[in-house]
Design a protein around this nucleic acid. Structure first.
Lengths: 350, 350
DNA sequence: ATTAGCACTCGGTAGAATTGACTGCTAACA
DNA sequence: TGTTAGCAGTCAATTCTACCGAGTGCTAAT
């Protein structure tokens, strides 16, 4: 699953002259609105341009030559290429949220409560409702969090539950099924030893396990190895996908819909996609920019969420390349900011 | 969300005479295969029937009159109604799994390990891969499970984590954010009291909380009320949906796809749907039988999963009414049985 | 009761003709 | 030199027509 990180190539792109830029933007706006190829006359009619369609046409050939526009076929209008969208996005003055959405966000954060996971999940729903795109909310891994408490609870002689609480507030359970029958006393003792051993370590810390060959030591060893035996990456990452039904609204063609849904099912893939794009501040991957073929007709907007300044996840929006960037980006930005504030604010509220 | 429970009305339906039955079945089989209306000659050609198409036709009129078949328009063949499918399903001799699927199931259960949640999730994926339908796996609520351990871990002065372990192996966390600053000592003491209070109770048990007005008692009260403050129903239910991309393959019409996806997003709804249909043994809800309008073009197959004889959840398959019932039902049955065995077997394995 | 035969219905398809939204080009113009 | 009006050309989409064929219901004969 090697994929390269793509940064927005803003600085590389030679800027277009004012008129070309206006024309390009007009084409993008119109195409986003209508989903149809845009003709020269439609652009010429665009108020802030006082030239004839013929002039627009010759500019369009230039824009096509430079790779910003494309023509589905002769005698059709132009549609933007990924590069065209990229230019558009890079020169977008950041939009403001509509009144309805503002209200929605406000109400949401005023009323939301509960565990982090619930908040993230509901945020995901919120975002997709606001934008009518599918949303992805990623909660950071607790790989770096330290362990606050470990507890071994025994269900019966052969089944024990290892419950670990991390400093980031996450709780993880693991089943232990040793081959010997352990007494409650032994389990308690093992639990005590585990606490002594693991508290304040992170999962990356290697610890010195006892080498004795008695039940307590065996339990301790099994617990530690179970706990540390995680996937090299991504373990503990949480993904919440909201509004997957939007996929059917927003993409056309059953096959495309199926493909996008299939990708959304692979949550690990989605996480790594988001992580790749993630940067400080709002960022967007358009079409094939993320280098992942099956999503070449998609655009993905990602905004980071932090807790106390450290990266704690991200919110994202997935739509077709011809998505309403301004609105969607505004939504992602506002929600990520409010979410950041929400988590920070949780500290001062009590 | 009131919905009535619908049991399969097998006994109520007057049985059809042999020939009508053969014809009806032929129509269903053919329609499931081709998705097209089925004509009288196609049915007549069906090997185990030695009558002319004309005879078939007159039988078909009867079947239509009795509500088993319908005609999209004059001069088209017949398609089964929900009632037709119902008859078909009720008279289906239980099928056997294909060799490939058998192998798939075998390998899966031979290799699967991990927490219950993971197993259920992966089972869901398995089912959808086997059948190419969307699968739903529901894990039972732990409302009746007793509490094995409660632990209050303090993150900082104002944030504490209440970690509860249930006898069914589930672990639940709740955040407590009291308005006063509690010392680690107070938290530990509260934790001790909670244990004394709650161990061996279930969430349905009302407990006597201390009425003192000190920090420990306040913490205990807040913990108990948080723990008991659950949704009246469904809390703790787990749902795993696998292969939602199949929706796009299997249903036709963007709008239908969107609608089904939208329903799948509401997990509570899906759970209640499954619960309604759930019965001992394999059961099927066809079309509007479940009384839920938006899913009237769907069929839902449900098979129960038990642990040590008590209901512990269910596996389900969601497809169009014209789904491959025999294969899908076989898959649901086999997987639910193996899952039941898996959970029972876990006890003897260690 | 069954069947062959027949007239009729009606959705789907294939082609042809038409439309119309574009373009690119050219020649005139400021 | 940049801009524009005008025009011929292209090509997808639409409309129309005719027709085909699958399938029915009915009837009369077996």
């Amino acid at each position: 699953m090697a994929r390269r990180v793509v940064r927005t190539p803003t600085k590389v792109v030679v800027d277009l002259d004012a008129r070309k830029a206006t024309i390009l933007k007009a084409v993008v706006v119109e195409h986003i609105d209508t989903a149809q190829p845009v003709g020269s006359s439609a652009v010429a009619a665009s108020a802030d341009l006082d030239v004839s369609s013929a002039t627009v046409r010759s500019e369009m050939v230039a824009l096509e030559r430079e790779g910003y526009l494309a023509q589905p076929h002769t005698s059709a209008g132009r549609i933007p290429t990924d590069k065209g969208y990229r230019y558009f996005v890079d020169h977008l003055q950041s939009g403001v949220l509509g009144a309805v959405q503002q209200q929605q966000v406000k109400e949401f954060f005023a009323s939301v409560r509960g565990e982090v996971e619930e908040v993230l999940e509901q945020t995901s729903t919120l975002l997709s409702q606001m934008t009518s795109y599918t949303s992805v909310v990623v909660g950071a891994s607790h790989a770096h969090a330290t362990i606050l408490s470990v507890q071994l609870v025994n269900l019966d002689a052969h089944h024990h539950l290892l419950v670990t609480v991390f400093s980031d507030g996450s709780v993880v359970k693991h089943s232990l099924t040793p081959s010997f029958a352990a007494t409650p006393k032994e389990v308690m003792e093992a639990s005590r030893q585990l606490n002594a051993l693991l508290i304040n370590t992170s999962l990356e810390t290697r610890v010195q396990v006892p080498s004795r060959r008695d039940h307590e030591a065996d339990l301790v060893r099994e617990a530690v190895s179970t706990l540390h035996a995680q996937q090299p990456v991504m373990e503990g990452e949480q993904v919440f996908i909201g509004g997957s039904s939007r996929v059917a609204e927003v993409f056309d063609g059953v096959e495309t819909v199926r493909q996008v849904l299939a990708i959304l099912e692979q949550e690990l893939l989605v996480v790594s996609l988001v992580q790749d794009i993630l940067d400080q501040g709002l960022s967007v991957a358009i079409g094939s920019e993320h280098g992942f073929e099956p999503l070449s007709t998609c655009a993905l907007i990602v905004a980071p969420v932090t807790i106390d300044g450290v990266p704690a996840g991200a919110v994202g929006l997935l739509g077709p390349t011809r998505m309403k960037y301004r609105e969607a980006m505004a939504a992602a930005e506002v929600v990520s900011a409010r979410l950041t504030r929400h988590f920070a604010g949780a500290d001062e509220r009590g």
